[in-house]
Write a protein that binds this DNA or RNA. Structure first.
Length: 230
DNA sequence: TACTGATCATTT
DNA sequence: AAATGATCAGTA
């Protein structure tokens, strides 16, 4: 008798189906998953930092490519892997979206990329300690999250503060310390990458592209809630 | 050891 | 160049 593959290669047709498939991945290693998908596992992630995210996208049937859409457009769900250690401590910040530095007149929280990306997220925690070989890293129980009013208020406040600074031409004054739960940091190929922004006199200049990231304390709380529930 | 700034691959 | 997927790694 042949075991049914736990791998889902077609796009899920419902939220429940997606969650069910994700749940069936929990408890298996990245090496096992990659083998079933016929994908080679890198020695480390130095040159393939997004490898785990792409692996999970394929396993769950996310729409391929780098389109400006949620991973599961029909379901309005974004997929995020969450690196944790064996004690369920979050190890990294979570990239949300690139930060527009121009053409933001009229942009509000309601229409922001941050709000829309974080509207509904399927989090897949991965025990991903650096010392652990990539193939041995372990997929944990996924959970679907929608920001509650308090969480959304936190995100909105930080987004507003950071966006206001950008609009005022103070983007280069921003560092990772700003924001309680959401920060603005470089998001680029290297420190020489440039994109257009405006200075405080409204004059265009070239600066490092930035992105919004969720701080680890925030994602840690989301995870803790679900650990208590489960 | 936590955190911020730097960096890597791929696709459009 | 900008979007997708993130983690690396030096230093405070």
């Amino acid at each position: 008798m042949i075991l049914l593959s736990i791998i889902y290669v077609l796009t899920p047709e419902s939220e429940q189906q997606l969650i069910q498939t994700a749940q069936r991945l929990s408890g298996i290693t990245l090496g096992d998953l990659a083998a079933q998908l016929g994908i080679a596992v890198p020695e480390n992630l130095n040159k393939e930092k997004g490898w785990i995210g792409l692996l999970l996208e394929r396993a769950l049937g996310a729409s391929a490519g780098s389109k400006p859409l949620p991973d599961f457009p029909e379901l309005g769900i974004e997929l995020k892997t969450l690196p944790i250690d064996r004690d369920a401590k979050v190890l990294e910040t979570t990239f949300v979206s690139v930060a527009p530095l121009t053409g933001m007149s009229g942009v509000t929280w309601q229409t922001s990329h941050v709000k829309n990306k974080m509207a509904k997220v399927l989090w897949v925690p991965i025990i991903s300690e650096r010392q652990l070989p990539v193939a041995e890293r372990l997929i944990c129980t996924p959970f679907l999250w929608q920001p509650n009013p308090e969480e959304e208020a936190l995100l909105q406040a930080d987004w507003q503060e950071l966006t206001d600074m950008i609009v005022l031409g103070e983007v280069e004054k921003i560092n990772g310390k700003y924001g309680e739960v959401l920060q603005l940091r470089p998001k680029a190929a290297n420190s020489k990458a440039k994109t257009k922004a405006f200075d405080k006199n409204g004059r265009p200049f070239q600066t490092l592209p930035r992105g919004f990231y969720l701080k680890t304390g925030f994602t840690q709380q989301l995870l803790n809630r679900h650990l208590r529930v489960n």
